[in-house]
Simulated scan of single mutants.
Amino acid sequence: MMRVIKGLGQKVKKKPNLTLIGLVAVCSLSYQLLIQTPRYESISRVVIKSSGNESASVEGMPIPQLGMDQGRSDALLVRDYLLGSDFSNQLNEEMDLKKHYQVDNLDYITTLKSDADDMEFYEYMQERVTAEYDDYAGVLELAAQAFTAQMAEDIAEFQILKAQEFINNVNQKITSSQILSALEELNRTMLSLDIAKRDLAKFQEATNTLDIASDAQSSIETVARLEGELASLKTMHGLKSKYLTENTFELKSISDNIVVLEAQIESERSKISAFKPDSLNARSHRYDELMVHLEVAKVAYQNALFSYELLHKEVHSTLKHLIVVQTPIIDERQRYPEVLKNLATHVGIAGILLFILAFIRASLRESKD
C-alpha cells in the first residue's frame, strides 16, 4: 500500500498539471452525480398574431396596417411580462415555488437559499423560468425548470395561461380606449335624430297636417276656384240686375252667395298670408326648419355609424391572439445537470488556467535569467 502511495506521489510530481486536471474532473463528476439536485424542463412555443394579416376595408376603402413588425413587438411585450417580478410573485402564490426550490440537501449552488427574500427569489427565477424570442422563426419559446417533471409542466402551463390573460388585457384596452369614444358619438347622434323626429311629429300633430307644401298648394287652388265662382256670380248678378230689382229673391240669393264666397276667399288667403303668426307661411317656415334639423341629424348619425363600423373593423384587425405551437408535456428525462458538457467545461477552464500559470512561470524564469 505504501508503495502504491509513493508511486502515485512520484507521478503527481512528474505530471502535476494532469493531476490537477484529473482532480477537477473528479470533483466535477462527484458534485454533479452525488450532490447536485437533478432538474427537469418543460418547453412550450407560442406565436402572437393579429386578426387581420391583410389590409382591412369598409365599403371598398382600404385601412392600412401600421407596424410591419407588430408580431415581434407583441411577442417581446409578452416576454417582458413573463420575465417580470409580478409574474414571479404570481407563480410563487399559485404553486409555492419558494418551498419547491428550497431543497434541504448539500446542493447550495442550484437550490434556493432557505432565507431568500423576494429579490433573491426573483433573481433565482430568472435562471429557472425563461422566455426567449426567436427572431428567425418568429416564435416565443417558454421554458420552465423544476426539481420534478410534474412541477416543470405545471409552471409551463401557467406561463401560457398568464400570457393569454396578458393578451386578453391588451385587447380589452384597445377596444375600450378606441371603440368607446366612437360608440358614445354614435349614441349622441342617435339621440339627436330621435329628438328631431319627435319635434317634427309634435308639430304635425299640433297643426293637424302632414305636409305644409301640399296644404299650401291646396289653399292656392281653393282660392283660385272660389275666385272663379265669385267672378261668375258677379257677372250673373250684373246681367240680372238689368231687368230685375234688388228686392227680388233671385238677386238677393246671388248677393248672399257673393258675400259668402268673398268671406271664404279671405279666409283661404289668410292661411297663406305672411302677416299673421298662425299663417300658412309661418307654419311652412317652421316645417322647413324642422325638416332641416331632421336631415342634419340623419347625416350626423350616418357619419357616426360609418365611423363606428370603420373603427370596429380596424380594431378587430389589430386584436392579438396567442397561438400555442408546442404545448408543454411531462418530460421524465432528467435535463440537468448536463454532466458531460459541464465536465468538459470545467476541465477546459482548468486547462486554460494551468496554461496561463505555466506561461507566467516561464516568463518569470526568463526575466530572472
Rank of each mutant, 00 (worst) to 15 (best):
K49T: 12
E229V: 05
Y31D: 13
E120I: 01
G7R: 14
T235A: 10
A149S: 15
M95V: 04
T111R: 04
R361Y: 09
K11G: 06
N247C: 00
L106T: 07
T148Y: 09
G22H: 06
E227W: 05
T148H: 10
S73D: 12
D278L: 01
D154C: 01
D115T: 11
S73W: 13
A56L: 08
M61I: 15
Y136I: 14
I179D: 09
E227G: 01
R225H: 14
K202H: 09
A56C: 06
M190H: 09
E41S: 06
L290M: 08
K14D: 12
Y40G: 03
G67W: 06
M95A: 04
Y308W: 09
A146E: 10
S253E: 14
A156P: 04
D69H: 06
D96K: 10
H285E: 14
S241M: 05
R39A: 11
H100K: 07
L193D: 13
L142N: 09
T248S: 13
R283F: 06
L364Q: 13
G60P: 13
N17R: 07
T189K: 06
F147H: 13
M125Q: 15
F275Q: 15
D117W: 00
D80C: 02
D74M: 00
T318S: 15
T222K: 11
A156R: 01
S270C: 02
I356D: 03
E41K: 07
Q10K: 15
Q264L: 10
L186Q: 12
F121I: 03
H321V: 04
S176F: 05
A282G: 09
I258A: 03
R335W: 01
V339G: 03
E227A: 02
L357K: 08
S284W: 02
E332K: 05
Q145E: 15
K14Y: 11
V292G: 02
S28T: 14
D211N: 10
V78W: 12
N257L: 04
E250D: 13
A362P: 01
T248H: 06
E127L: 08
D80F: 03
R269H: 03
D69Q: 12
S307E: 14
N168C: 00
E127W: 12
S219W: 15
Y243F: 14
K341L: 07
K98W: 09
L353N: 02
K197A: 12
G9S: 11
S44M: 03
I329L: 08
F275W: 09
E366N: 04
G9D: 12
K99C: 00
F203Q: 12
Q70P: 00
L311C: 02
Y31R: 10
N168G: 04
L210C: 02
M190Q: 15
M291P: 00
S273F: 02
D199I: 02
